[in-house]
Design a binder for these strands. Structure first.
Length: 417
RNA sequence: GCGGCCAUAGUUCAACGGUAGAACUUCGCGUUGUGGUCGCGACAAUGAGGGUUCGAUUCCCUCUGGUCGCCCCA
């Protein structure tokens, strides 16, 4: 190991090639957001711990064991944000955004932090892009959000993606359903696999995912939440489905969809990808009509989602490479104080004129400079000599001629040769 | 938080318990101010700490990190 120091566990450095791919994802996302009227917002990387405890839910894994929490010098309990929705709702309330035209449509991106065991597609500092539409209970808002994520993934050309859709109903509907499911499971306890049995009261929905034969046969007759939906919950879900149908977005109903955050109500969805391994979710979200009220605000319906940037990168594989950028002009010069100053002056002039320009900073000889120019993909090389006129060389054709100082910029921008 | 596998130059890989090698990259050279190919040369490594041994890259333990899965989720 060359260096004594390493990036902390579960974190990573974004090196230039990776940074280009990320920049492309961000560019596509911000275009998708802007077209649908979602304005950018940014919140701090850390918040009062209580915001997440109340917002995400004290019983969730995130709050119970995954938060980076510390005390600041003023004795406040601070937590590195593990997700983006609660902070945005906090900002919505803090800045009185309920007085704006509703819904308030926001988009965001940035680092998030969860203290988990790292594995493929799972990091302790990871990046999400997301949107929130706050202040609308219309199923069209749910559908709009889902269509946007679908569009984003399609425009990024992520393949092998599948949309799973479900509904949790209202808090009340969900609670009574979960009781029903638990009693079904308890009634067949001896037929279940051990791990499912242990989690009956913690996470009964998980039983639907089991590979265990006995468990599967029990689950075939288990009630599902989607079929228990009634009244407005059922109407909302049907409307979302109809909107997705007219938008040409394909989905599969997944009655077993689970979200690990307490704030979800009604619509939930998840985009999964078969190229991802164990962490197969690219992104997901849903409706959270109770969250703002939970944070002390007025009852306000809302819907949103987040996608994992690292997950997208993983799903994209080698196809995710970003634009390598402009091919620069390279100024080759002799290591002579006067000529070096000319090179510096010329580089600045060209750069100010909008031309990507580089020159040697490593003391290379003439040959080394040209070799370097070739390596960095230079389009043209200007040779500066202490005597005689400057030359320009086209690196692709090898053609070389005298540079006319009067038409310097025009010539080097590729306007003509 | 729990399991399995793993850790050698910047990178990808070698090395029966006995002199750590190669390829790629980088730098230089192949005369006279000029690239790509080719040839030659140089720089450069056993993650950390213990133990066994005459001797450890190799065997054992701990730590650190990676990776895959569980869990969970973006």
């Amino acid at each position: 190991m060359a260096s004594k120091y390493q990036a902390p566990r579960g974190t990573f450095d974004v090196l230039p090639a990776d940074a280009r791919a990320r920049r492309r994802i961000e560019a596509v996302a911000s275009a998708v957001f802007a077209r649908a009227g979602y304005e950018p917002i940014a919140t701090p990387a850390f918040e009062e711990t209580e915001l997440f405890e109340r917002g995400v839910g004290r019983s969730t894994d995130i709050v119970r064991k995954e938060m980076f929490t510390f005390e600041d010098k003023g004795g406040r309990s601070i937590t590195l944000r593990p997700e983006g929705t609660a902070p945005i709702c906090r900002a919505y309330l803090e800045h009185g955004m309920h007085k704006l035209a509703q819904p308030v449509k926001l988009s965001y991106g940035g680092p998030f932090f969860r203290h988990e065991r790292p594995q493929a597609g799972r990091y302790r500092q990871f990046h999400q892009l997301g949107i929130e539409a706050i202040g609308s209970d219309s199923p069209a808002a749910d559908a709009e959000a889902i269509v946007m994520l679908d569009t984003l993934l399609k425009e990024l050309k992520v393949s092998g993606v599948e949309l799973r859709l479900g509904s949790l109903g209202s808090f009340e509907a969900r609670r009574s359903y979960l009781e029903e499911l638990k009693s079904h499971l308890h009634a067949h306890e001896d037929e279940l696999s051990e791990d499912v049995r242990e989690r009956i009261d913690v996470n009964p929905l998980r039983a639907f995912d089991s590979d265990d034969e006995g468990t599967r046969s029990v689950m075939e007759n288990a009630p599902t939440l989607v079929e228990r939906l009634e009244g407005e919950d059922a109407a909302h879900f049907n409307a979302v489905r109809a909107y997705l149908d007219v938008s040409g977005v394909k989905y599969t109903i997944d009655p077993t969809l689970v979200r690990g955050l307490d704030y979800y109500t009604r619509t939930i969805f998840s985009f999964v990808c078969d190229r991802l391994g164990a962490q197969s979710e690219l992104g997901g979200g849903g409706r959270y009509d109770g969250l703002i009220e939970q944070l002390g605000g007025p009852s306000t319906p809302a819907v949103g989602w987040a996608v994992g940037v690292e997950r997208i990168l993983l799903a994209l594989g080698d196809e995710g490479a970003g634009d390598p950028g402009m091919r620069p002009v390279f100024i080759s010069f002799k290591w002579d104080a006067e000529v070096e100053r000319q090179a510096m002056a010329l580089a600045t002039e060209l750069r100010n004129a909008g031309v990507a320009t580089e020159f040697d900073l490593a003391g290379r000889g003439a040959k080394g400079q040209l070799k370097h120019a070739n390596r960095i993909g230079a389009r043209l090389v200007v040779f500066l000599h202490e005597d005689g006129p400057a030359q320009v060389r086209d690196m692709d054709s090898g053609e070389q001629h005298e540079l006319d100082p009067a038409r310097l910029v025009a010539e080097l921008t590729g306007g003509e040769t």
